[in-house]
């Protein structure tokens, strides 16, 4: 546990002292700020501000474009960078269990990603400061859903990062996986057979749009997002362990 905590602290520190990560954060805030401003300018949202969380977290560009792309960019440095720099082997031979390595890196990325959402929360606080009426249940719901989705995307990014030392493959592979998780269910959502049912049960924007961002907490959506994250963490662990088995 102490080794886990030490590695987690090291990873968090590494995030906070990386200019690349802050540039990434800056772009995230910029794009979100632009989207926020555009949505706020629409007459519909000015007529009813309760539509802002669904627009921002549910069916908007944030979910379809930004959210799948940013977490893999953050997670490339976790394994792929270490592999490229040659520091992965010493880490894997250090007296720390592989599962602790995976979890420490993952939770460090998750904690840092809270900063990404903190900036978005700041936008809502800004509105509150200007005496805008807010439905905080929907905002918190939407934030929670978006956070859980981003944690899933971090897990896929982490898995892609464990494939090797190619940074482009790690970032691109993670993003591609995330887009697949988003788009494949959307393609089959209207199918009448089992494929349609499966697609509707795994359609991430629906979880956000019809659930979290509407202030509804759905136990299945939470379990889906957590268990899929756990699956990709396990696959990352398998990949790391198999490096020892198959050099």
């Amino acid at each position: 546990m102490r080794a886990f905590a030490a590695l987690w602290r090291k990873e968090v520190f590494a995030f906070f002292t990386s200019p690349f990560v802050f540039v990434l954060l800056g772009f995230w805030f910029l794009l979100n700020g632009l989207m926020f401003s555009v949505i706020l300018d629409t007459q519909a949202v000015q007529n009813d501000l309760s539509l802002l969380p669904p627009y921002l977290f549910g069916s908007g560009l944030l979910v379809w474009l930004l959210l799948p792309a940013f977490p893999p960019l953050l997670s490339i440095r976790l394994f792929a960078e270490e592999h490229r720099m040659g520091t992965l082997e010493p880490l894997l031979t250090a007296p720390i269990r592989d599962v602790a390595v995976v979890l420490a890196k993952y939770f460090a990325a998750c904690v840092f990603f809270l900063l990404f959402w903190g900036g978005v929360l700041l936008l809502f606080l800004l509105l509150q400061l200007h005496h805008a009426p807010m439905d905080w249940a929907r905002i918190w719901g939407g934030m929670l859903g978006a956070m859980l989705v981003s944690f899933l995307f971090l897990a896929t990014g982490l898995w892609a990062s464990s494939w090797g030392g190619n940074l482009v493959l790690a970032a691109g592979g993670g993003a591609a996986l995330n887009y697949l998780l988003l788009f494949v269910p959307a393609l089959f959502e209207l199918d009448e057979g089992w494929l349609g049912r499966l697609a509707r049960m795994t359609h991430l924007p629906n979880f956000l749009d019809r659930g979290f961002a509407a202030g509804l907490l759905d136990s299945y959506a939470v379990v889906y997002l957590l268990s899929m994250s756990a699956l990709f963490l396990f696959l990352t662990w398998v990949r790391l362990v198999s490096r020892r088995w198959v050099p």
Partner: peptide, 11 residues
């Protein structure tokens, strides 16, 4: 039977 939903919205 296992799926639960909680409405947290103000309305």
């Amino acid at each position: 039977g296992l799926r639960q939903r909680w409405d947290l919205s103000t309305a």
